[in-house]
Amino acid sequence: MAETQVISAEPRPPAGKWIPAVALAWLIPGGGHFLLGRPGRGGVLFGSVALMFLLGLMMRGAMFQPQSGDILTTVIYVGGFIGDLASGIFYLLSVWLGYSQADVAGHVHDYGTKFLVGAGLLNVLAMVDAFEIATRRKD
């Protein structure tokens, strides 16, 4: 006779425990770690994301705007926009201060665009880490 195995799901941690840390981690890269008392790691995350974003700006990378069309266009442009947005205050400041760069040919511009998205994706990793620390899944 087949045995049934009951797998108990891990209880969902209360939102009040992790939302402030994750929200701050999005707005200010490394900020979630500072809030949770991990200033050393927060500093490394802030420095890495800030430097990558700054290098992207200095290489005149283009910011993605969401566009729809065929599936590949949608994935690239919406995904790129989310990646840019994930840099938090750096993205908001650069847009508010009027940074606007057309998507032009050239390897330096192309690297710049990737650095801008890469900075946001690194910050997503930092946000996940802040979530795990806030919910005590990790030190």
Binding site: G47, H107, Y111, K114, G118, D129
Partner: peptide, 15 residues
């Protein structure tokens, strides 16, 4: 550019 990308990404992955 690739070395800088590798350096910064490795720092975050390590942390």
């Amino acid at each position: 550019a690739a070395i800088l990308f590798a350096l910064l990404t490795s720092a975050v992955l390590g942390v």
